[in-house]
Computed example of a mutant assay.
Amino acid sequence: MLDAFTRHPRSVDETYGEHMAVAWSFAVPMLLGGAACFVHGIFPFLFETTGSRCVKTLYTRIANRGRQRGAKAAGAEMPNWAAFDAVI
């Protein structure tokens, strides 16, 4: 039973506690970004770029995290954000 809680964290070289902290450090901005998008849907003049910034920031964090562990990105390169014109 314990293996179910530790198998995945071990596979990314983290303890259970470290993995929880990292997961939550992604969850909080995702929740806040989602809430901002929800409010933006009702009041389009609020949080005009918050969702886009959240996506860009989290993508950059997760892509760099893999590189820091020495893992190669699966054939993907960092996107050219200057060409990224979508705004959420």
Rank of each mutant, 00 (worst) to 15 (best):
residue 83 A to N: 11
residue 23 A to M: 13
residue 24 W to L: 15
residue 20 M to F: 09
residue 26 F to E: 08
residue 27 A to K: 15
residue 33 G to Q: 04
residue 12 V to K: 04
residue 54 C to D: 01
residue 7 R to N: 13
residue 19 H to P: 04
residue 51 G to P: 01
residue 48 E to P: 01
residue 67 R to C: 04
residue 29 P to Q: 05
residue 12 V to T: 10
residue 13 D to Q: 14
residue 67 R to M: 12
residue 48 E to Y: 08
residue 67 R to I: 07
residue 83 A to L: 15
residue 21 A to D: 11
residue 47 F to Q: 00
residue 14 E to Q: 15
residue 77 E to C: 03
residue 41 G to F: 13
residue 27 A to E: 03
residue 56 K to N: 03
residue 33 G to H: 06
residue 33 G to R: 05
residue 47 F to S: 03
residue 62 I to V: 08
residue 69 R to S: 08
residue 74 A to S: 08
residue 76 A to D: 03
residue 45 F to Q: 09
residue 50 T to R: 00
residue 65 R to L: 12
residue 37 C to W: 02
residue 88 I to E: 01
residue 70 G to V: 09
residue 12 V to G: 02
residue 62 I to S: 08
residue 22 V to E: 01
residue 47 F to N: 00
residue 32 L to F: 09
residue 67 R to D: 04
residue 66 G to I: 01
residue 78 M to L: 09
residue 16 Y to W: 15
residue 80 N to Q: 07
residue 22 V to G: 00
residue 66 G to N: 04
residue 87 V to Q: 08
residue 30 M to W: 06
residue 7 R to D: 14
residue 37 C to I: 11
residue 6 T to W: 09
residue 20 M to D: 01
residue 23 A to G: 07
residue 86 A to P: 00
residue 58 L to H: 00
residue 83 A to M: 10
residue 57 T to A: 08
residue 53 R to E: 12
residue 55 V to Y: 09
residue 82 A to L: 07
residue 20 M to K: 05
residue 42 I to T: 05
residue 84 F to H: 14
residue 78 M to F: 15
residue 57 T to M: 07
residue 56 K to I: 12
residue 23 A to P: 02
residue 84 F to W: 15
residue 68 Q to K: 12
residue 52 S to L: 03
residue 69 R to I: 01
residue 86 A to T: 11
residue 59 Y to S: 05
residue 65 R to G: 14
residue 50 T to V: 13
residue 36 A to Q: 10
residue 55 V to A: 11
residue 39 V to C: 03
residue 21 A to I: 13
residue 78 M to G: 04
residue 58 L to Q: 12
residue 66 G to V: 00
residue 11 S to D: 15
residue 78 M to V: 05
residue 24 W to C: 05
residue 36 A to M: 12
residue 26 F to C: 04
residue 45 F to G: 07
residue 61 R to A: 06
residue 57 T to L: 07
residue 69 R to Q: 13
residue 32 L to H: 01
residue 71 A to R: 10
residue 83 A to P: 00
residue 52 S to I: 03
residue 55 V to K: 01
residue 45 F to K: 12
residue 84 F to L: 10
residue 36 A to T: 07
residue 33 G to I: 02
residue 43 F to H: 12
residue 57 T to D: 03
residue 9 P to C: 09
residue 32 L to I: 14
residue 26 F to P: 01
residue 77 E to N: 11
residue 25 S to Q: 08
residue 60 T to Y: 03
residue 11 S to V: 02
residue 72 K to V: 10
residue 34 G to N: 07
residue 18 E to K: 06
residue 27 A to Y: 06
residue 58 L to Y: 00
residue 74 A to C: 05
residue 74 A to H: 10
residue 9 P to N: 11
residue 22 V to P: 00
residue 68 Q to E: 10
residue 72 K to F: 06
residue 24 W to H: 10
residue 77 E to D: 08
residue 48 E to L: 04
residue 54 C to H: 01
residue 17 G to T: 11
residue 52 S to N: 05
residue 33 G to Y: 01
residue 84 F to Y: 15
residue 2 L to D: 06
residue 48 E to V: 13
residue 24 W to V: 13
residue 24 W to M: 09
